[in-house]
């Protein structure tokens, strides 16, 4: 039987009004079902470290859970100054939804190779 890989998409609107702890919980709840999360936008840096802490607290407690692999593609980092200013205004109006975050369980995703413009997912056999 062929192996199935499920990608779960979370639109930015779905997490926009959530508190940090709720965002982290939502992501981890999906990860623990063995799915890969594609999040529109990105977590704040402090939320990311909160996600790492929550992940580490679960390693060893949940059978087979070894942690997560995550990567963010952020179009801002490669933009010219004018574009960044424009994006800054847009971000105020629309929120930080221009980035794309990929988070997968480490039991499925071996490695995420990240360059400024591409993400490569290396899956476990």
């Amino acid at each position: 039987m062929a192996n199935k890989l499920i990608l779960s998409f979370i639109p930015y609107a779905e997490i926009q009004k959530m508190e940090s702890s709720q965002r982290v919980k939502k992501i981890l709840d999906i990860i623990l079902t063995g799915k890969i999360v594609i999040l529109q936008g990105k977590l704040e840096a402090i939320e990311e470290s909160g996600l790492i802490q929550a992940t580490m607290a679960l390693v060893g407690r949940i059978k087979g859970f070894r942690g997560v692999e995550l990567a963010v593609i952020n179009p801002e980092s490669e933009q010219a100054l004018f574009e960044k200013i424009k994006m800054g205004i847009a971000k105020v109006l629309a929120g930080n939804r221009y980035a794309l975050t990929i988070i997968g369980p480490a039991s499925i995703v071996k490695e995420i190779k990240r360059d400024p413009k591409k993400i490569e997912l290396m899956l476990k056999n």
């Binding site: 704040e44 990240r114 360059d115």
Partner: peptide
Amino acid sequence: QNPYSQVNITIVGNLLA
């Protein structure tokens, strides 16, 4: 190693914040 690892970015992002 590749410096674009998310761990590096998360650490620096947290320090910046």
